[in-house]
Design a binder for these strands. Structure first.
Lengths: 154, 154
DNA sequence: GATGAAACCTTCACCCC
DNA sequence: GGGGTGAAGGTTTCATC
């Protein structure tokens, strides 16, 4: 279980981050291998968990969720029960697209995808503030996404 | 160019967000269609830009970039030239995985993927502080990612 | 939206270095 | 240990209904 990645593995990963539906055949050309060893490597990378999966990238704008809001949430008590409860609630909210537990004060940082401000207000009032233990909420609105990678790519 | 998405389109999108390498055949079963109309719909969704692409999800931890840092950057002048210059630099830094231009003070919010604190320091000193016009930098370190979607999923 | 056939791709046992 | 080959089986694609 030691992820020893050689030059070719890294190229495979790089290409699949660019196009996750590349056929083994096309990929093998790009990395300078024939299809079957290429497929074997991909299988190994998947089995080892280095490739966690493949996802379609959806245009949030076109789907009607063109507005993102970053929300910082503080809980009133830093007990496990509250964290678990909060995280369970977050997992069930489709609007919450990304969530991190931060150091320093047991804050959560969320990114919420909404249609517009009215939709965001609905999220705040009917979802987030209803979760037990939330003591403060602070929102920041971005203008534009400048970069959107999902992992380090060279 | 009007994204009228019916029930089946939405199901296709949902499934492809879960598994971006689903074959048209398997997908057609899940959405209750035969393979070819299913493929036609996918092609249409791609052509319309609703599906922007497909990417492999890579385990940053296993790749040696297990640490994320959120960095807020303020530029000293809010002129276009500086924004363009900063964004060009950011685009070229592989450590920067996500970047948003925020309202209120022309701040940028970045997520940086690094191996450890030493690696992060290297990023700060040899990359970020070398970009012209950066007037202040503030870093927050997360403990753990609680949720990781890439778009709203129901 | 479905069908079917041709072209294409994936997979696997097998061989090779 | 890894990479290549080829053939069987499965998938995609497209014209057609």
């Amino acid at each position: 279980m030691e992820p020893k990645l050689d030059e070719i593995d890294q190229r495979i990963i790089r290409e699949l981050q660019r196009d996750g539906r590349l056929s083994h055949q096309d990929l093998s050309e790009k990395v300078g291998l024939s299809p079957s060893p290429c497929a074997r490597r991909i299988k190994r990378l998947e089995a080892e968990g280095i490739i966690k999966g493949y996802i379609a990238q959806i245009d949030e704008q076109r789907m009607g969720y063109g507005m993102s809001v970053f929300v910082s949430v503080k809980l009133d008590k830093q007990v496990d029960d509250q964290l678990i409860n909060f995280e369970k609630a977050i997992a069930a909210f489709p609007e919450v697209v990304d969530c991190w537990l931060m150091t320093g004060g047991f804050d959560y940082l969320l990114r919420v995808a909404v249609a517009d401000l009215a939709d965001f207000e609905r999220f705040l009032t009917s979802r987030l503030t209803k979760v037990g233990g939330v003591s403060s909420i602070e929102s920041s609105i971005p203008v534009r996404r400048v970069k959107d990678q999902r992992a380090r790519i060279y």
